[in-house]
Nucleic acid binder design. Structure first.
Lengths: 193, 193
DNA sequence: TATATTCATTAACAAATGTTAAGAAATATT
DNA sequence: AATATTTCTTAACATTTGTTAATGAATATA
């Protein structure tokens, strides 16, 4: 990318001034498909923003199976550091599902900018709030919909993802087995015949 | 309560100085069993801390059924404002399950204190982090355990609650029906005969 | 205390989801 | 292109969970 500042101005909905300031704490970084760029229990003090590609957060359950918690798509933030760390150590893995390009910056640098720049503070709080809202929304879905409805909802939220990533990521995200996902896919398809 | 400051000092694990400062923005308030002291879609800018009694957060699903999201127990915070509001409006209901006494204070007042008092900032961030951690933990449980295991886990976390509150609150929290909860209760009990 | 009301349990059955294993389809490797 | 590997689908069957309705237990109200 030639100009981080103008990318930010476009995608963060911030003034040129704030964008400029923010861009100075940001770097751009690329990871290959499959890379775990944050690992559970390792120290992590960074924030990420997806420019290109798709990521997910996941952890291993008691049987060693990977459980996907969230997907992250282009021009959106990855979960804020505070929501996925404990004493600066990650409580889950972040993985590039495709080749990705990310904006990366230190959480501490952002905190400092927030103190001095009201617009950046408002923006950062909105990002946090958006993340929390999404968590509550998912919890609500999980508790008030069956698997079929959850898949339909997933398709609304992540329209192109289903044909792009392994279904095992999706099934564990929905809290069902691969087999069950396959069954539900077929059932929904049958309704449109 | 005679002295909020000394209560805080005990339960918040803060210095006397910070406790004194915090106590000055806090009031104590009582609600009767059943009171919805925060209502969905209403403006809310407050933070709460439970001194005595039990509360829950809940919402109504598409069929009008109440779904419990969290329980709150004595000497612990209620979910921080930022995790349960959108543009200062509540995204869920907070209800007193028993008669309760709460510490109540304005989110804004806390934010101001955080800026000037490092110890209070650290404390407040820890409260937020604890809440987020709990959310991730619940999501993990929900996705990697069956209902029986979730009930056992619930009992670990909220040892006395099961005999104190309506089971419908617990079943919706666990994401199952009352009938299923009853069945699982019996099955677990049978193992200890 | 008697009655009404709400809540929890149980049973019978239905529906959804999990488990295992086999085969088909897609993708990667040689 | 041929083969190997991984992923997805399907089937058969088991288990879990939901639904409805009846009963019993606990609680509230008259």
């Amino acid at each position: 990318m030639k100009d981080i500042s103008s990318y930010i101005s476009n995608k963060f909905f911030l003034s040129h001034c704030s964008s400029k300031i923010l861009s100075e704490i940001m770097d751009i970084v690329s990871f290959e498909k499959g890379t775990n760029f944050v690992e559970k229990d390792r120290e992590n003090k960074m924030e990420y923003w997806i420019v290109e590609g798709i990521c997910r957060s996941y952890f291993l359950d008691n049987f060693g199976a990977e459980i996907t918690l969230s997907f992250f798509t282009p021009n959106k933030p990855v979960s804020p550091n505070v929501t996925r760390t404990n004493a600066n150590h990650s409580i889950l893995n972040l993985q590039a599902i495709t080749n990705v390009r990310l904006l990366i910056f230190r959480n501490e640098d952002l905190m400092n900018l927030m103190k001095e720049h009201k617009e950046i503070e408002v923006w950062a709080n909105a990002v946090l709030q958006g993340e929390l809202q999404q968590k509550v929304a998912k919890e609500i879905n999980q508790n008030s919909m069956n698997a079929k409805e959850r898949l339909i909802d997933f398709r609304d939220q992540y329209s192109s993802l289903e044909n792009l990533i392994p279904h095992s990521y999706i099934s564990s995200y929905l809290g069902i087995t691969n087999v069950s996902l396959s069954r539900i896919r077929k059932e929904i398809a049958r309704n449109y015949e």
